[in-house]
Amino acid sequence: MIASVPLEHSLLAAAVLFALGLVGVLVRRNTVFVLMSIEIMLNAAGLAFVAAGARWGQPDGQIMFILILSMAAAEVSVGLALAFQFYRHFKSLDLDAGRTMRDWHV
C-alpha cells in the first residue's frame, strides 16, 4: 500500500479550490472566466469525492468523479455555446450586459 495523503489534506485542498472557484464566479464579469471558475468548483467537488473514496477504499468516489467529468464536459459545451450566442447578441462577454434580459414589467 503506497503512502497515502491524509484525508484532511486533500479535503482542505478541495475546499480551497472550491472557494477559489466561487470567488471567481462572484467577482469575474467575463463569461469565459466565470465558466472556468465553475469548472474549478466542479473539480474541487470531484477531488473531495476521490479523496473520500480512497479513504474508505470504495470505488464510489471515482465513479462519481467520472460522472462529474462527463457532466462538466457537457456543461462546458453548453456554456461555451451560450457564451458564443451571448457575444453575438450583446457584442460583449460582460455578463452584466445581459441584465436587460430580466423581467421588466416590475
Partner: peptide, 20 residues
Amino acid sequence: HRALSLGQTGKIRHYAVGMA
C-alpha cells in the same frame, strides 16, 4: 409577487451569491 420580483436584478453574480 411584486415584492419578491424586486430581487430579480439581472446580474448573475447576485443570484450566485444568493445560492451560496
